[in-house]
Write a protein that binds this DNA or RNA. Structure first.
Length: 429
RNA sequence: GGUGGGAUACUCAAGCGGCCAACGAGGGCAGACUGUAAAUCUGCUGGGGAAACCCUACACAGGUUCGAAUCCUGUUCCCACCA
């Protein structure tokens, strides 16, 4: 099986500028390819993973991946899929973001020195810096008619009469910048393929066109589908917002949980999209999933593979242990170490030892507010009355309940829970 | 410029002198059922209080009234029709 068949099997193929030619080219030997991302934040999120993982798939087949950070394009703003003009980011912020994201890229792509097809990170700010505006217009702008540019979906959707915001000249030019990237990478690294989400089709074809016209060379574009959730919501968000790769933003535990909680209808699809598991393994998981969805083996496999990829095996096992505790019932017999892990995975607040030891103890209602689980004593009260509050995983429905030293585990921890999933640890000091 | 209509909680949307912290729907939260799911059902959804009850809120500022989201005056912003 070759890489293209693999991608097709995984549902990761949407379109190609010249499928037959590319197939042939890939048979001849390793190819250099790239995918870009705009460094709009100082951490990648799970939505960024598909192109990166796709690059890695190519790398696993012996091809040479380049990941392009859009230090230049990011300062322009890609209009694709956007309804309105975007805020410009400062150069400093973009540079900072690129630096931060690099630490995450090394986990997904193999940047080992000495490897024949080692991954490479480039920043298009490096080559756009020296290019003057006039030069760019003469060397690149000349190859494209406005007629074809306004026909692109990313522009067309912003030109409609009902869209008063319109599109700025700046964003309109985005496709040329991205197109030039491809030309430049072809000239510099002999890069012959660009991959991206299907929303990138218009931008990618500008690049293949420019390279053909300017350098007389055939290069290819390949797109994969945009990820959607079966329920129609946007992929990659959970209640707390986007799921980031940075553990400081999204804890390993939450990252793991995000994949555990994937919709049944999506789990096999995501196994194919995101993991490097073999076809046989995935088919076996699919069979098990269909037979007994309640066992959720496919979910566990997905969550394990993804967390391992991004955070490493050790942190993944910690997250699995934490999950067992947080969903497994009481805290009896729990080790101090395990509990410390749990406490570090959930939001926590510190309380004074004296508050627990004084005569009245610490009001559970106040503790819920302190821990951030309830917005006010009023809502805390309703949560308790509704049976939604647990102390150390045991339901408490007494409004007057006072926390005392008896509730503290290992002299340090009290685990509060509101509802099924919202935990907070009180750390006694 | 003239004339009408409107501004209500996260959103939509009732209420048009006391029974209004405000009908209903959506969303959100919680409970039951489950598989840490979906669907379904139930409850909650301004703050304080164990509760009685109190406080703050129906664009803004005043006024009438025992009592106002509801009536009056002015201000701001929206919308429609007319020139």
């Amino acid at each position: 099986m070759n890489i293209l068949e693999d991608l097709q099997w995984r549902g990761l193929y949407t379109d190609c500028t010249a499928l037959e030619e590319l197939t042939k080219r890939l048979e001849e030997g390793p190819i250099t390819l790239y995918a870009g991302f705009d460094p709009t934040a100082d951490s990648l999120h799970v939505g960024n993973l598909v192109p990166l993982i796709a690059l890695r798939r190519f790398q696993n087949y012996g091809h040479k991946p380049i990941i392009l950070a859009g230090g230049a394009t990011g300062s322009i703003g890609d209009p694709s899929g956007k309804k309105a003009e975007r805020q410009l980011l400062t150069k400093e912020l973009l540079a900072h973001n690129v630096a931060c994201v690099k630490n995450q890229l090394v986990k997904i792509l193999d940047f080992s020195e000495g490897l024949a097809n080692t991954a490479r990170l480039v920043d298009n700010a490096d080559w756009f810096g020296p290019i003057g505006f006039i030069e760019f217009l003469r060397e690149t702008g000349k190859y494209f008619t406005v007629n074809s540019m306004i026909a692109k979906e990313s522009v067309k959707s912003r030109l409609g009469g009902d869209n008063e915001a319109g599109i700025s000249y700046t964003e309109f030019s985005y496709m040329l910048i991205q197109g030039y990237d491809f030309f430049h990478l072809n000239a510099t690294y002999d890069c012959e393929l660009q991959i991206g989400g299907s929303d990138q089709w218009g931008n990618i074809t500008v690049g293949t066109e420019l390279t053909r016209k300017k350098a007389g060379k055939s290069v290819y574009g390949l797109t994969f589908p945009l990820i959607t959730n079966a329920d129609g919501s946007k992929f990659g968000k959970s209640v707390g917002g986007a799921i980031y790769l940075d553990p400081a933003r999204t804890s390993v535990y939450r990252f793991y949980q995000f994949f555990i909680n994937v919709d049944d209808r999506d789990v096999i699809k995501f196994l194919k999209f995101f993991t490097f598991l073999s076809h046989e393994d995935i088919e076996a998981l699919e069979a098990k999933h269909n037979e007994n969805p309640g066992a959720r083996e496919a979910h566990r496999a997905l969550a394990f593979e993804m967390t391992k990829l991004v955070h490493g095996e050790e942190a993944t096992n910690d997250a699995i242990n934490a999950s067992k505790i947080l969903f497994g019932g009481g805290l009896d017999g729990i080790s101090e170490n395990a509990l410390a892990q749990v406490a570090s995975e959930v939001p926590s607040a510190t309380i004074a030892k004296a508050d627990l030891e004084c005569e009245e103890g610490l009001s559970l209602l106040d503790a819920l507010v302190t821990a951030g689980l309830s917005q006010s004593r009023k809502t805390a009260k309703k949560d308790v009355q509704g049976g939604g509050v647990n102390v150390n995983n045991e339901r408490v429905q007494d409004l007057g309940y006072k926390l005392t030293s008896a509730d503290v585990h290992y002299g340090k921890y009290i685990l509060l829970r509101r509802g099924k999933k919202n935990y907070a640890a009180l750390i006694v000091e």
